[in-house]
Amino acid sequence: MRLERDNRRGGSLLLALLLCGLLTALHARSGRTGHADLVSGLLRDRGLVPAQVAAAHLGEWWHGHIGSLLAGPGLARRNADLQAQVLVLTAQNKELFSQKAENLRLRGLLGFEQRSPRSLLAAEVIALKPSTLSDTLTLNRGSTSGVHPHSIVLAPNGALVGQVLDVAPGSCDVLLLTDALSSVGALVHNHTASGPFGLCQGDGQGRLRVIYLASDAHLHPGDAVTTSGLGGVFPKDVPLGAVNKITLDKARSLQTAILRPSADFNHLEEVFVLQDAAPVGG
């Protein structure tokens, strides 16, 4: 009896480990193309994503109906602030429209081709940083919506959020810029003709830094930092953040700039996916 029981236990553990190995191998094989394997994709799309979308909607409802009641006194003040902000933005918008019209007219005069803006796909964040092991988020859009591995993801304010890591038909995982494995070519706009180039990296602790900046580059707190467009993966001039602190490594004659990120990585609810970025390495 005891032997039989031990055999059953050992057999169960062995079977579970074998299945684990098999699924991991399947996942690794599919991972080379950046697509989720069949089991993971199906389980995520049919099992987790619908529940996470429902949970997200429930959270929104709670925030809108119950949370707003609790936030009562602060709402009037926030409303007044937003109204003032709308006025300022409306004025800026009008100015930008006139500048855009002028830009189009001048481009026409100079014979430049029209640069068609990349189409954006709105996506909902259904899981944010589910593991402390890495900074990732899950979106409710997948390969059926045109998302592919290495698609670029932007915050509602246009700041870079990261790039798509893994795609299932109805969902995808995004590696955030703040992850320790993320890096992107960066350009610091320090009010000179051509600002210094560097490499923007996440540190896995929610911060961004630009490394490999020349020691003679004049950097100031508040300087805007955008993507450099070098390397061809990320488009140029996407905001990354603003310089917050500068450190100098005298031994290597290099500067490092600690950034204040443009995107609020801890409170992302909706994002945009750049649709027509060509897949890299896939």
């Binding site: 684990c20 690794a28 991972g31 987790l48 589910p130 890591l165 995982d173």
Partner: peptide, 11 residues
């Protein structure tokens, strides 16, 4: 369930 949410360290 955990692995599908974090594909980099699946296994």
């Amino acid at each position: 369930l955990t692995a599908i949410s974090f594909p980099s360290a699946y296994g």
